[in-house]
């Protein structure tokens, strides 16, 4: 019963947040420079044509009505048309999102892995040299701008050492046959091993960059929670009853520290979306982020606003899913 009411509240909260996001982006698009009326009616026009264009665009209607239209368009997948590509923004995004998703998912997986392992070890051996190094890496990782780190890893691993391929997008050579749009997955599905190797090589540096910058705050959080859990009464009691230390850490402490860390992962996902925009640009990665930056450079705003509103909604969805997973995993939320 309690669970159902929590579920209801959580979903209501999600809807309210999405509405809030939509209101903000609506206001932003209405204040964007480059009045759409003049775009439609042409620069040198009389008042009559301006009025006609205003009516045609529905800009003479009250704001709430305009808002409803705005949301309706979004729901129907009408995100406007890109001036730069002269394609509907939806189509542009549809062809680009797998590149971004592949990069982001891989980056978050790598980030979570190293953050948990290093954070846990640093918490278990707080006075070790390892913990100090972890401290340093954490501080640097939190402070380094990811777009700069991206250029530095290119300098080191491509320009100087020559062990990474040139930053020229998702793959050099022919991409694997399209099944899912994820090159690594498609390469495996079509057994195209050279394409798999080539796409993994291209993923190496951008994933490294994003994994370091998003993993650093996660590692610190993991370490903090782990330290807290290791000091808790049930760990002490477990030790007093002779449970081996490795088992205490892995079986008893880690799951308890993991719960709050997953919330952190959801938060970092939002950060990752922002970071991906810039890292994609540096690596000429043909994803949604590079699309947004290229559109900005061309003063083409419809695609940018679409990316902004969609990423906010994706972020809220990830947050919702995290909370729901908590609900299922944590026995204390069940009755």
């Amino acid at each position: 019963m309690r669970m159902a009411s929590y579920l209801g509240r959580r979903l209501a909260y999600f809807v309210v947040s999405v509405l809030g996001v939509l209101v903000i982006t609506f206001v932003l698009t209405r204040t964007l420079p480059g009045n759409p009326v003049y775009l439609l009616a042409g620069p040198l026009t009389d008042q009559e044509k301006v009025d006609a264009a205003t009516r045609e665009l529905g800009l003479d209607r009250p704001l709430p009505a305009q808002f409803v239209t705005y949301v309706g368009d979004l729901v129907h997948g009408d995100l406007g048309t890109s001036l730069r590509t002269s394609q509907p923004v939806v189509d542009d995004l549809a062809s680009r999102w797998p590149a971004t998703a592949e990069l982001a998912i891989l980056a978050i997986l790598v980030a979570v892995t190293w953050a948990l392992v290093v954070g846990t070890l640093a918490a278990v051996f707080p006075r070790s040299v390892f913990a100090r190094v972890a401290d340093l890496v954490g501080s640097l990782g939190v402070s380094v701008p990811e777009f700069w780190l991206a250029t530095v890893v290119i300098l080191v691993f491509f320009t100087s050492l020559g062990i990474a391929p040139a930053p020229i997008g998702r793959i050099s050579g022919t991409p694997p046959g399209t099944v899912t749009g994820f090159y690594t997955v498609d390469a495996v599905l079509t057994a195209d091993w050279s394409a798999l190797r080539a796409s993994l090589a291209q993923l190496l540096l951008p994933v490294l960059t994003l994994a370091l910058t998003t993993g650093a705050p996660m590692m610190r959080t993991a370490r903090e929670f782990m330290t807290g859990v290791l000091g808790s009464p049930y760990i002490r009691a477990g030790r007093a009853l002779g449970i081996p230390p490795a088992r205490l850490v892995v079986r008893h402490a880690l799951p308890n520290a993991l719960l709050p860390v997953t919330t952190m992962v959801a938060t970092m996902f939002g950060y990752l979306l922002g970071g991906t925009v810039m890292v994609e640009f540096v690596f000429a990665w043909p994803g949604v982020g590079k699309y947004a930056v290229d559109s900005i450079t061309a003063s083409d705003y419809a695609p940018v606003m679409a990316v902004v509103v969609l990423s906010a909604i994706v972020y809220l969805l990830v947050y919702l899913v995290t909370d729901l997973v908590h609900l299922v995993v944590d026995p204390r939320s069940r009755i």
Binding site: G20, V23, L32, P33, Y271, Y301, V304, Y315
Partner: peptide, 24 residues
């Protein structure tokens, strides 16, 4: 609180992008 949460629902960098575009 709701207003604050709506702003926080955005990935910071992307919200900043949107607002900067809108304001110039």
């Amino acid at each position: 609180l709701r207003v604050a949460e709506s702003f926080q629902a955005f990935p910071t960098m992307l919200l900043a992008m949107g607002v900067t575009l809108a304001l110039g």
